[in-house]
Computed example of a mutant assay.
Amino acid sequence: MPKAIVVHRTGGPEVLELEDFDPGLPGPGEVRIRQMAIGLNFLDTYYRSGLYPAKTPLIPGGEGAGEVVATGEGVGDFAPGDRVAYVFPLGAYAEERNVPASHVVKLPGAIDFETAAAAMLKGLTAEFLLHRTFPVQAGQTILFHAAAGGVGLIACQWARHLGARVIGTVGSDDKVPLALAHGCDEVIQYRREDFVARVKEITGGKRCAVVYDGVGKATFPGSLDCLQPFGMYVNFGNASGPVENVSMVDLGNRGSLYATRPTLFSHISRRPVLEAMAENLFSALENGVIHAPVSARFPLSRAADAHRALESRATTGSAVLLPDG
C-alpha cells in the first residue's frame, strides 16, 4: 500500500508520522498521481506547527510531480501516463494522491520531475512577485531578502534577466557566493551588516523601487527604509515570524509607500491564470533564463529530518522528498 506522512496533532517535526495511505479512486474532476518527487517548502512547517490553522489529521505539502495513473469523471485534459506537476491543495507528502485536475498542468518533457517538484510553488511565487505584484522593469533596483533560499535563487535570476539591478540579503557567509552566482549584483550578509545602511550605500542614497520580503519580522520595518518614495514593500513569507502592526501613517511618512501581502492561492484560483503562469515558468526553465537547483534530497520517511533542516536554515536553494520505494 502507498505511504504518506500524516500529522495527527500540530507541533514540532516529531509529529510527522509515516503511515499506510490509500487515496482511493479519483473523484469527479480529479486525477490520481503516482508521485516521483515532492516539493519541500518552509510553508509546510507553518501547517505542521499550527501557525497556519488546518484540520487534523492532515498530510502536509503543496506541490509535486509525477505520472497520472487514473482519472475521475469529467476529466478530459489528462490521461494515464501523462507527466504532470501541480501546486496545492495540501496532501503532497504521499507516494500517491488525488488532485483536482484544475490544479494540474502538463509537464514538458525537457523538465525532469525533481526540478518540477522543486520549482512549482517557488517558481510560480517568483512569477507572480516579479510579473504581477510589482512588474520589474529594466533599470530598476530591487532588494530581495533570503536571496539564497528556494524562491530567492529563482527570483533573483529572473529579475536579473528582466534587466533589474538585484541586491540580495543572506544570513551566512557561505550563502554569499551562491546568491552572487544566481542573479545578485550585490549581496548583504545581514547578520553582520546593517542591510539598510548597505542598501543606501550601494544605491548612492537612491534606495530601491521594491523590496521582496519572505523573512518577515526580522527584516521589518528596516525594509521600508530601503525604499525610494512611492516604492513597494512586498511581504510574502514569515520565516522569522509574521510582520505585525503595520502603520498606514508610517507608510505615508516614509515616502507614500505601498505595502502588500500577496498569496499564490489568490493568483492560481483562476485556471487561465495558472496556465499562463506555468507556461511562463516552464519557458524560463527550458530556455535557461532560470535554473532551479535541487540542493537536498530526503526520503519521504525522513520528512522530520527535512523539516529540521528547513527550520535551522541549513538548506539553500530547493529540497525535495522522494518516495522511499
Rank of each mutant, 00 (worst) to 15 (best):
R9T: 08
R9W: 03
R9Y: 06
T10W: 08
G11F: 07
G11W: 03
G11S: 03
P13M: 09
E14S: 02
V15H: 10
L16A: 10
L16G: 05
E17Q: 13
E17M: 14
E17G: 06
L18D: 00
L18G: 01
E19I: 13
D20G: 04
D20F: 08
D20R: 03
D20P: 02
G24Q: 04
G24M: 00
L25D: 07
L25C: 03
L25E: 04
G27E: 11
P28C: 00
P28Y: 01
P28Q: 02
G29S: 14
G29T: 06
E30F: 06
E30Q: 08
E30G: 01
R32E: 07
R32N: 06
I33A: 05
R34G: 12
R34Y: 11
R34S: 14
R34V: 07
Q35P: 08
Q35N: 11
M36C: 12
M36Q: 08
A37D: 13
I38F: 07
I38P: 01
I38T: 00
G39Q: 04
G39E: 01
G39D: 06
L40C: 06
N41S: 13
N41K: 11
N41F: 14
F42L: 06
D44V: 05
D44R: 08
T45Q: 01
Y46V: 12
Y47P: 05
Y47D: 06
R48L: 13
R48T: 08
R48P: 03
R48A: 06
S49N: 04
G50A: 01
L51M: 08
L51S: 08
Y52A: 05
A54C: 03
A54K: 14
A54F: 09
T56N: 11
P57S: 14
P57A: 12
P57C: 13
L58H: 15
I59F: 04
I59Q: 09
P60N: 13
G62D: 11
E63R: 15
E63W: 10
E63I: 13
G64K: 02
A65E: 10
A65Q: 06
G66C: 11
E67T: 05
E67P: 01
V68L: 01
V69P: 12
A70F: 00
A70N: 00
T71G: 00
T71N: 02
T71S: 02
E73V: 06
E73H: 02
E73T: 12
G74C: 12
G74H: 07
G76M: 09
G76H: 10
D77Q: 09
F78D: 04
P80L: 06
P80Q: 11
G81L: 10
D82A: 07
D82F: 11
R83Y: 04
Y86V: 07
Y86R: 07
V87K: 13
V87H: 14
F88H: 14
P89K: 15
P89W: 15
P89A: 04
L90H: 15
L90Y: 14
G91M: 13
A92G: 03
Y93L: 14
Y93M: 11
E95N: 03
E95P: 00
